[in-house]
Design a protein around this nucleic acid. Sequence first.
DNA 1: TCGATTGTATTATAAATATAATACAATCTG
DNA 2: CAGATTGTATTATATTTATAATACAATCGA
Lengths: 124, 124
Amino acid sequence: MTRFDIDTKSAVPAYQQVMQAIKLEIMSGRLKNGDQLPSIRDLAKLLKLNPNTVAKAYYNLEAEGFIESRMGSGNWVKFVPAKKDTLRRTMLETELKNFLEKAVSLGFDVGDVRLLLERFMKDE
Amino acid sequence: MTRFDIDTKSAVPAYQQVMQAIKLEIMSGRLKNGDQLPSIRDLAKLLKLNPNTVAKAYYNLEAEGFIESRMGSGNWVKFVPAKKDTLRRTMLETELKNFLEKAVSLGFDVGDVRLLLERFMKDE
DNA sequence: TCGATTGTATTATAAATATAATACAATCTG
DNA sequence: CAGATTGTATTATATTTATAATACAATCGA
């Protein structure tokens, strides 16, 4: 797993930074299905965090279906490509719906959003 | 202004509910440029909130450019159609960028988002 | 001008959240 | 089996956030 650091000055809570970093590792493929994650205590020591903070990150990652915790033994990446694709898609759809809600409350419709998106695609 | 209520059981803070309701009034056109808003104390009494809670909502609405507060006199909707359109567009772009960031961190690209969006347009 | 109305500032309280300290319990390994 | 390692649960502390109580200051209007 790629090393990462916690920005203690950030407004983003430490446990969320841990979650984000690990998700990124999984999404990018650097962490594969079945890979074992560092133990809570080891990662806590490495990042200079309290073990409970890492435990909270792992707990949430498990709830979101990214990893699996087994008592006494450790934490593993849970990454079944097919399932993960539907998971990612579900997450994307949730985020899109949230965004569209905001757009509508701003007075725009889905067509407006589509036009703006296409401008984005041309620009970059 | 259309009457609205505060859901005290909601996880959304009261001051944010006030902001959202007033933005909606402005965006929908029910509140027009130059319209005077109820005084902080009046709205607080109406909604059964502390005046400071309403003041916080008004303060943020002013910071976001939706209204204007004048000491001793009151609060007015600031809604210059042209400027407001650019404001809305800026807000939309900000929200879109935030969403696209999440999409990318999920492993999707802008093209994927466009396809999903078009499916949304067909379905509804 | 002067009282009433308005927004603002200060301070306090309550609730939620993040982090930490510590103890507990399941699993693995020799 | 026994000790070490692992995740989990409980409780406490610190910080942030939302709300409230109160006092202050600018503006308006009779």
